[in-house]
Amino acid sequence: MASIADTTAIARPRRRRLELGIVLALAWLVLLVVLAALGPIIGIQNPDDGDLLDILSLPTAAHWLGTDSLGRDTFARAVYGAQVSLTVALGSVGIGLALGGTLGLIGGYFGRWPDRLIMGAMTVLLCFPGIILAIALVSSLGPSVGNVTFAIGVIFVPAFARIARANTLSLRSREFVLAAQSLGAKLPRILIREILPNLMPALLSYAVVMLGVAILAEAALGFLGLSVRPPQPSWGGMIAAERGNLAEAPHAVFIPAAVMFLTVLAINWLGEATRRLFDIRAQSL
């Protein structure tokens, strides 16, 4: 999380070589998104239907990923859990990006008291271990996809604000900004048309990484019972529910864990690739 703030400089990508890892990561994510989006349409069974005669079964032809302790199909639950994870990830990163980016842009461009005010507020927010703030927010607002998204989005704001501010500071006295100012460009134009596009590489490569962090945070909340309400499936909730059967049926815990692991791994893999693309320090090594 910490090394991201260094990505101030922007460089052209040297060459685009499609690595196998990136292809696999993209394929996994596309598959997941398609399944999550089309789940009910393409006939994936109801994730709440349990067959109590067939509990904790290993993967079979009927249950591709086995069943849980209530005989519910793990594959169906993983797919419906993906809906939750992906919605929360995209939504919370969107909130962090929009809110944090705006605050950082304003603080960095205007400096002086707006900057001190905004960065002071961000420091206070950073003082909370993120998950604690999220726990407090979700437990006060009630567990639902929207509230979990909001809570995780709020804890992302300071980091995005810091990145946007640091980059704006180095951009605001660059020639193209001075040129726009002396040509009499209006303030919104300078901020949105001149500075914002140059912030995007740093913000977006950070956003990719934060998608993975958001999925992990949602899972942690789900593990504590603070994500969606049962029986609606979430990956963290699935793992928490089967934790007691670890000795007899480890697959009931580790299969949903593996789905989550592969998803976050794929996102991190793409994140590394984007970071390499934009990070001049890594390229010069």
């Binding site: 993975g212 992990l216 899972a219 942690a220 593990f223 963290g236 989550m260």
Partner: peptide
């Protein structure tokens, strides 16, 4: 390290418990 970064701490914990 990228593998560990992709795993929530409680799953690492459950893996170690197992």
């Amino acid at each position: 390290s990228i593998g560990l970064l992709s795993t929530p701490a409680f799953v690492i914990g459950i893996g170690l418990i197992y």
